[in-house]
Write a protein that binds this DNA or RNA. Structure first.
Lengths: 230, 230
DNA sequence: AAGTGGTCTAGACCACTCT
DNA sequence: GAGTGGTCTAGACCACTTT
């Protein structure tokens, strides 16, 4: 439908930004020469897709960037910690431009030698390490990644802000961490870790690969959802 | 809206079952005394919610039981194994009626003494144990649970068939398994396990609590989703 | 008071499926 | 060919928000 396409394109190209008001139904009726029911349906469907918010008496607005967390509640770890009433602190072990090696190239599905950033960050809850984040990022998709202060903003926050998130994939497994990981997370020798591989796509490209290692004792991944319509 | 409510109630009460045909739009127009656009919108919204499937020229039908797996792909373990081209086999360690103890009562949020079923099943992929399923089920919600042959159908399959699934919750963590679990899964002493707690609700009640233990080496939980509209 | 979206009506034309 | 859903029109009344 022409109207949905028009609105989606305007959002993609940036002509319409989150919070912006759309033309009213009446204006779109005039502009596209269709009936109001048609305009109304188009906008209603975009609303139910989470792309617009609408308020009777007020107008239709481009929705804020989508909340990812509905399905797998791995949101912003800093917010999560603070929501529990604890202090959040991050220690940036490294954050530097690198060239893709054979292994990292395979992880991001790019040629060896591609410019990447590699960061390792230990996230703390009240001084307790709760996550080691080992991430590689496509430099062309996030040119300022290396200059970002990740004690103030998390990589995930940064990436979702600069690049529209299209797809996320999580894989979770348990493993015994290696010695250096144990040291960074302050783990006992016998303690297993919950490892999540999180890959994100933007503008059709796989842009980031993160390995998130958690002490098993101090972490649980949860997902909960209702069956729609039931 | 009256029509959506009518259809949903008919499905909930069992008057309409998956695969059944609904009255045509014209019939609903006559029955409810509303215009066809109203009927059409109601049915279209139920379709987009995944409750109906519709085919032009043919009719509207109650959709098959919903695919749970979109968000967390823990589907039917038997199908998963077979999809990998391997043989699936289940060993039922126990499956018996029990009364809720203090602990199991707390897990299902029922009074102690409530009638339950308790089953323990080891799922195998080509003779390799890949999951220990330790489950308790509300007997009043699944009266035939104890008489079901779980070498032929999985508990999850059985439960989703007899009770409309309303809500699922998953919690995942890593842990070192105890000795009896190690024995059932054939694990080494040092091997961590990925433990998923899966709780399911039906008709407003928490009906099942399952602890699924997986050898970490042989298992990965994955979830992948696209951002709608992006 | 003017403008907005929310909802509904009565009618129309079409492509498709079923027989 | 009869019946189905897919889509659209032109008009209406309402509750709400904004000014």
């Amino acid at each position: 439908m022409a109207i949905k396409h028009f609105v989606c394109e305007a959002i993609k190209t940036g002509a319409l930004c989150p919070g912006d008001r759309l033309p009213s139904e009446a204006e779109l009726v005039a502009r596209f020469g269709v009936s109001r029911m048609t305009v109304n349906r188009a906008l209603r469907e975009l609303q139910s897709a989470g792309i617009l918010t609408r308020r009777a008496g007020s107008g239709s607005f481009v929705a804020e960037p989508r909340p990812i967390g509905h399905m797998i509640e791995i949101r912003n770890i800093a917010d999560e910690v603070r929501a529990r009433g604890h202090a959040y602190r991050a220690r940036v072990v490294c954050n530097e431009p690198v060239r893709a090696t054979a292994e990292t190239a395979a992880l991001l599905n790019v040629p060896a030698g591609t410019r990447l950033f590699r960061s390792m960050i230990v996230h703390h809850e009240d001084e307790w390490p709760i996550q080691l984040e080992d991430r590689i990022v496509l430099a062309s998709a996030a040119p300022d990644y290396g200059a970002t202060d990740f004690t103030r903003t998390t990589p995930n926050e940064y990436l979702t802000r600069i690049a529209p998130l299209e797809r996320v994939e999580h894989r979770v497994r348990a493993a015994m961490p290696d010695a250096s990981t144990r040291a960074l997370l302050g783990l006992d020798e016998q303690e297993p870790a919950l490892i999540m591989i999180r890959r994100t796509w933007s503008r059709g490209r796989l842009v980031s690969h993160a390995q998130l290692t958690h002490p098993a004792r101090r972490f649980e991944l949860s997902a909960s959802f209702s069956v729609p319509g039931a």
